[in-house]
């Protein structure tokens, strides 16, 4: 462990309609402390000085709940690949470095306060069709229907999405295609998802468009920045699912 001092250049915005601005803060931390714990240290200092702490989202702090966000030095979830902001440790930065911290910037994710955004649009897309329509209690024995390991593993890879919104933040168009395609893929790859396959693709894409997400131009930024390494091939699958569904209409 070695001590370090960094300058955090943080976006402060009092509320959804307020004008925001960057403010600089100097904070002492060390290489074994996480980035969010460094923000905790800074907030503790601000409270001591009777100033308002920086509002940011985080919950599980082990990279799985998807609550943390932050655009750090131009990257969603910061410089580490395959990791969320809460899994980012200060050893990734240099002593004396100035680190720029912003909220997700996307029309579909309005700022609530400082670094917190409203990601309710993601829930609405899931509500449009991200499920199998059956009621609890009626399922057959789990082993009655063998599923190939390859399909199950691929579905698992898609289902790993944590719904954090980094893909939208990374995309120059603010597209949610990677997020939607991961969910559509999980169901399309498994037998239980087949019955509603076409309807699901149509409804989820329509909802995504309605909520103001941009279109996909296949730059691949979403997948490159995804903390769970969700593959771009999901988007290819979604396009195929969507076209097939439209043709069948």
């Amino acid at each position: 462990m070695s001590k370090m001092t960094v300058t955090l250049r943080v976006w402060r915005q009092a509320g959804p309609k307020a004008q925001g601005e960057f403010k600089n803060y100097t904070v002492e931390t060390d290489t074994d402390t996480s980035f969010l714990e460094t923000l905790d240290i800074l907030n503790e200092q601000l409270v001591e000085k009777k100033e308002e702490p920086i509002a940011f989202d985080s919950d599980c702090r082990e990279g799985i709940c998807g609550m943390c966000s932050l655009y750090i030095n131009g990257h969603p979830h910061g410089p580490a690949t395959g990791a969320t902001t809460c899994q980012l440790y200060m050893r990734r930065f240099k002593d004396g470095e100035t680190i720029t911290v912003e909220p997700w910037r996307s029309a579909a994710f309005p700022v609530i306060k400082d670094l917190i955004v409203d990601r309710n649009a993601f829930d609405k897309i899931q509500q449009a069709g991200g499920y199998v329509s059956f009621n609890c209690g009626g399922a057959q024995d789990a082993n009655d229907l063998p599923i190939s390991k390859v399909a199950a593993d691929m579905a698992m890879d898609s289902a790993t999405c944590i719904g954090c919104g980094a893909c939208v933040a990374a995309c120059k168009n603010g597209s949610a295609m990677l997020f939607v395609s991961a969910k559509v893929s999980q169901f399309a790859l498994l037998p239980q998802g087949q019955v509603e396959r076409a309807r699901r693709a149509r409804k989820m894409v329509a909802k995504m468009d309605e909520l103001g997400f941009g279109n996909c131009t296949n730059t691949g930024a979403c997948s490159a920045e995804c903390p769970k390494n969700i593959s771009l091939s999901n988007i290819a699958r979604l396009n195929r699912e969507f076209i097939a569904a439209k043709c069948a209409e």
Binding site: Y131, V132, F134, C136, G137, G138, A139, Q140, D141, A142, L145, I147, S148, K149, A152, D153, A155, M156, A159, Q186, F187, L190, Q192, G193
Partner: peptide
């Protein structure tokens, strides 16, 4: 019953 329910929901358990 829980395992049956989850498989029907498309929970991708290890196989």
């Amino acid at each position: 019953n829980i395992i049956d329910q989850c498989v029907a929901q498309c929970v991708p358990f290890a196989r």
